[in-house]
Design a protein around this nucleic acid. Structure first.
Length: 734
DNA sequence: ATTAGGCGATTTTTT
DNA sequence: ATCGCCTAAT
């Protein structure tokens, strides 16, 4: 039996049309991943060698899952398949070709934080006030320009106001600085390959010959640079299969251009177009709601999604008093559904527009001991101490990387502050030296104190020592040696506070991650590890093996599915987000975002909103989202927990066991009433013994401040007295 | 003159 | 939890 017998006729067509351009318009849940994996497997089965296939995905996780599936289908012959995100694939190509562009193969990859920091330093140097011109905004503007392949010169020429003029100045210096640092930012990973292909036709031809079959997933979220890259690579053989759904385009703010998919027919008039319209994922009700919402968008290709799945339950809309209340209501429904639908926590996802919304939901989950994971937010590799250690390693691999140098030259404290560093920078730029070299020669700098000179020299010697050693040691030996010699673990140990010990554990975890990485394949270098880490996405770091509820933004939810989905904060100002409400185009993107969220659900969907919530440091009164009104009433069952004033004032509690579905909650008087709970999640009194997640156990000495920003002085057994904000401290009375 | 540590404010979405 | 700003300590 051929593998393609497992597909429906339309999917089969998408798989078997291997020559020429193919556009697969794949609605949510229509078996898109299946088509991609089977198509690749099919190519190999008809004799195409794996190394001639290039498959570009949106996340590394999607790539590795698909790869696993392909190995199952065709076995070992898929070994040399190139599959990954645009960024990781082109980083790999750039490593090989870096010299042609004036970089070394060990160039650093700067993430958004690094870029931001470079820009701040430059603005300082250029005398541009960060108060007047937000570095954040300048960075976004530069990134946007780069994605449109606009050079600093072009940008300067077209600058139409003061902000753009200032941006143009920073842009020019920023590009220079990155080059000097032997570093590329995320945008460069797409822009530099284009530069390479356009200036070195021979190189382009090599890659065109190599990648005769190209597949691109999530094409609706490609930006202009990605579009041009693909156009170049596919120009010779034109065996290009793109898969996407314009209705799921949600990265416009990042430069994604929905026209790429809408205009595909223009670029490739001979393209075969395949419409995957049968949905295998959701109930009829969920699909109908999704369809009603997305129909309000003007700018789209029309589709007719349908499903053989059962009608399913109505969509439940939860109306709540405020964000805390919303968290509690979601938790009750989770308990309810776990017993009612016989599902596990891992089958449930809670989605929201902004990361900040996770806090109140987390509180409720934690109070009720429901295990959960958050995708995104503050991730492991973004932790300060982890980034610091990585900066040491990065500097050893790429000694010209000034960003890494600045990060760690005074970490741990070497008494090298702002002024000392400023003088070193001046010295370095006047002599045209990299900072590390300047530090080595710090003795020539008269203006420094002897102590500063010594410390700069010692630091430079330390780094140089490991630069010498790096080729004779494995990645894991090297990183351990560095951490040891710098005394980072020792430092945290001496500090001894629970926070320091937590940081120490993070470093140890990082070291094991490096060992694990080296163990996977022979001869992995530190540089490879660093590259992998810098291109990891939030979803990539998600371990879906544990039985936990998953929390994430609607953006992160793309490509995933769950039996039960909660979408919280379906309110004006949040979804659609407030900045977007003035422009039709961005409202349409917000609508697509909701569409993505709705279509993640397989059997049960909840939409919730709150009458009020904490935003921007105060209480904000919220209005239900316009999108809710776009779903017809017969698909919805509404539970208004705020309508009855009696309900508002009392605390709800889940009944241990219930037989009827409507009365799963009852209200008790024996608990503090709702108003009280709202201001003061846990009632605290002087003399209470409490427990804190990090500081451990302690006794309350004093409580003070206004109700909404209550403070408590707590004497902890382990760390002594601490002044805490009650609303953040999550104290438990014991 | 410098640096370090404490305090207060902080909220779009991300490779 | 982290960043930036301010003040105390060296």
């Amino acid at each position: 039996m051929s593998i393609i017998d497992e597909l429906n006729p339309i999917q089969r067509e998408a798989v078997k049309t291997v020559e020429g351009p193919v556009l697969v318009l794949a609605g949510p849940g229509s078996g898109k991943t299946r088509v991609l994996t089977y198509r690749i497997a099919h190519l190999m089965n008809i004799g195409v060698p794996a190394y001639q296939i290039l498959a570009l995905t949106f996340t590394n996780k999607a790539a590795s899952e698909m790869k696993g599936r392909i190995v199952e289908l065709v076995g070992e012959k898929s070994n040399h398949l190139w599959m990954g995100t645009f960024h990781s694939i082109f980083a790999r190509i750039l490593r090989c070709e870096a010299e042609k562009l004036g970089y070394t193969k060990h160039f650093s990859i700067y993430d958004t934080t690094d870029s931001h920091s470079v820009i701040c330093n430059l603005m300082d140097l250029l005398g541009i006030s960060p108060q007047q011109y937000h570095p954040q905004a300048i960075r976004a503007r530069i990134s946007h320009a780069k994605n449109l392949l606009v050079s600093p010169e072009m940008f300067a020429r077209d600058a139409s106001d003061v902000f753009e003029e200032k941006t143009a100045i920073v842009f020019k210096e920023y590009e220079k600085k990155l080059k000097v640092n032997n570093a590329m930012d995320f945008d460069d990973l797409l822009v530099k390959p284009i530069e390479l292909f356009e200036h070195h036709k021979k190189v382009l031809e090599t890659y065109q010959e190599r990648f005769r079959f190209i597949l691109v997933d999530e094409y609706q979220d490609t930006n202009h640079a990605q579009y041009v890259l693909i156009k170049h690579l596919a120009a010779r053989y034109r065996n290009l299969c793109i898969v996407g759904d314009d209705a799921q385009s949600i990265y416009g703010f990042r430069g994604a251009d929905i026209r790429n998919i809408l205009d595909f027919k223009h670029d490739y008039p001979d393209a075969n177009i395949v419409n995957l319209e049968q949905n295998y994922r959701s109930t009829q009700t969920i699909l109908a709601a999704a369809d009603q919402v997305i129909k309000k968008n003007i700018d789209q290709l029309t589709k007719h999604l349908w499903t053989d799945n059962p009608k399913g339950e109505p969509i439940t809309v939860l109306i709540c008093q405020d964000d805390q209340h919303e968290g509690s209501m979601i938790v009750s429904r989770i308990f309810d559904d776990v017993s009612r639908l016989k599902i596990d926590f891992k089958d449930i996802a809670i989605m929201y527009r902004t990361n900040a919304q996770s806090r109140s939901i987390e509180d409720s989950l934690r109070r009720n001991s429901i295990p959960y994971v958050i995708i995104g937010g503050i991730e492991f590799y973004q932790r300060k101490e982890v980034k610091d250690v990585l900066a040491y390693l990065q500097l050893i691999v790429n000694p010209r990387d000034e960003e890494s140098f600045m990060r760690i030259v005074n970490y741990p404290n070497r008494g090298l502050g702002e002024t000392a560093l400023g003088r070193l920078q001046q010295f370095a730029s006047s002599k045209q030296l990299p900072l590390l070299e300047a530090a080595r020669r710090a003795n020539e700098l008269e203006s420094l104190t002897q102590k500063a000179k010594d410390n700069f020299t010692l630091f430079a010697l330390l780094i140089h020592k490991y630069i010498q050693l790096k080729d004779s040691m494995s990645a894991s030996e090297l990183s351990r040696a560095v951490v040891d010699e710098v005394g980072i673990l020792q430092m945290f140990k001496e500090e001894g506070t629970p926070e320091a010990l937590a940081r120490r554990e993070n470093i140890q975890e990082l070291l094991s991650a490096i060992s694990e990485f080296s163990a996977q394949e022979a001869d992995t270098t530190l540089a490879q590890f660093l590259e992998q880490v810098s291109l990891l996405s939030d979803v990539d770091q998600w371990d879906d093996k544990h039985n936990t509820v998953t929390l994430m933004t609607l953006h992160s939810a793309k490509g995933l599915e769950f039996p039960v989905v909660f979408i919280s904060g379906v309110e004006e100002g949040l979804l659609p987000f407030s900045d977007s409400t003035f422009e039709t185009k961005s409202v349409e993107e917000e609508r697509r975002l909701l569409y993505v969220g709705i279509t993640r659900a397989k059997v049960k969907l909840y939409l919730s909103y709150s009458r009020q919530r904490f935003r921007f440091g105060g209480v904000s009164y919220q209005v239900p989202s316009r999108f809710l009104g776009e779903i017809s009433e017969e698909l919805i069952q509404t539970t208004d927990y705020t309508r009855d004033s009696y309900v508002q004032r009392l605390r709800y509690k889940k009944r241990e066991y219930s037989t009827t579905k409507q009365t799963s909650y009852y209200f008790t008087d024996d608990l503090p009433d709702y108003e009280q709970k709202y201001v003061e999640p846990v009632e605290l009194h002087v003399g209470n013994f409490v427990e804190h997640d990090i500081f451990g156990k302690g006794k309350i000495i004093e409580i003070m401040g206004p109700k909404d920003s209550l403070k408590a002085v707590v004497d902890f057994q382990a760390v002594g007295r601490k002044n805490l904000m009650v609303k953040y401290a999550r104290l438990k009375v014991i």
